[in-house]
């Protein structure tokens, strides 16, 4: 794997740090006019999702990480592994519960997800920023309360529980932001 010097740091670059694959989120160039330059970096550990602050002297370098993001279709959960497939090649990848983490609540069979492979094995699953899912469970809707605010919890077909407006019923589809878990809108079918 190539190594990257501080002046090649940019957001999205995948590097090895303390033995773990990491992704650079933010790189700030810091330098007094006549002094030493540094890179202040926010970096995400791709194994545990934790974000760290690191400071490097300019000219230091990090080894690149063999990490690629591949779009895959979610197939099924066998209780131990979540199975994903590359639609073009039918290649299948089992992802353990650690790799899927909290993304499991957004998984719906047949839908596409971004699977991060490290040395050929899944280490993280990222759902699209917005997904459309059906409500499978919620309290009955309150008629005539469409204008008023107020929300109630609703369970979606993937398992996620989100707050939705009171007028929504079981069987209706909603659009949700997976980053915040926030309800965006009703989807007319």
């Amino acid at each position: 794997m190539a190594s990257y010097s501080t002046n090649e740091f940019r957001s999205g670059l995948k590097v090895m740090l303390d033995g773990d694959p990491c992704s650079i989120i933010e790189n700030e160039f810091v330098k007094p006019g006549k002094g030493q330059a540094f890179s202040r970096v926010k970096i995400r550990n791709l194994k545990n999702g934790r974000v760290l602050d690191k400071t490097f002297k300019s000219g230091e370098s990090l080894e690149g990480a063999d990490v690629v993001d591949v779009d895959m279709q979610y197939l099924y959960d066998d209780g131990e592994f979540y199975h994903f497939m590359v639609p073009e090649t039918f290649e299948q990848y089992p992802a353990d519960r650690n790799a899927v983490g909290e993304s499991n609540i957004w998984l719906k069979a047949q839908d596409m997800y971004e699977v991060t492979l490290y040395n050929g094995a899944p280490i993280a699953i990222t759902p699209p920023n917005f997904v459309e899912l059906e409500i499978t469970e919620t309290d009955p809707g309150l008629k005539g309360d469409t204008a008023q605010g107020g929300t109630k919890p609703a369970t979606l077909e993937s398992g996620a529980v989100v707050k939705v407006p009171l007028f929504l019923e079981i069987g209706e589809k909603v659009r949700v932001d997976t980053r915040s878990g926030a309800y965006m809108s009703r989807v007319k079918s």
Binding site: V30, G35, Q36, L52, T55, K57
Partner: peptide
């Protein structure tokens, strides 16, 4: 004061530059 740095790599002036700017 500075998170995530190996300060053993830094000279006296490097330390001053970093502490001053940050």
């Amino acid at each position: 004061h500075i998170p995530g740095i190996d300060s053993s790599l830094l000279s006296w002036d490097d330390c001053l530059d970093l502490l001053m700017s940050q």
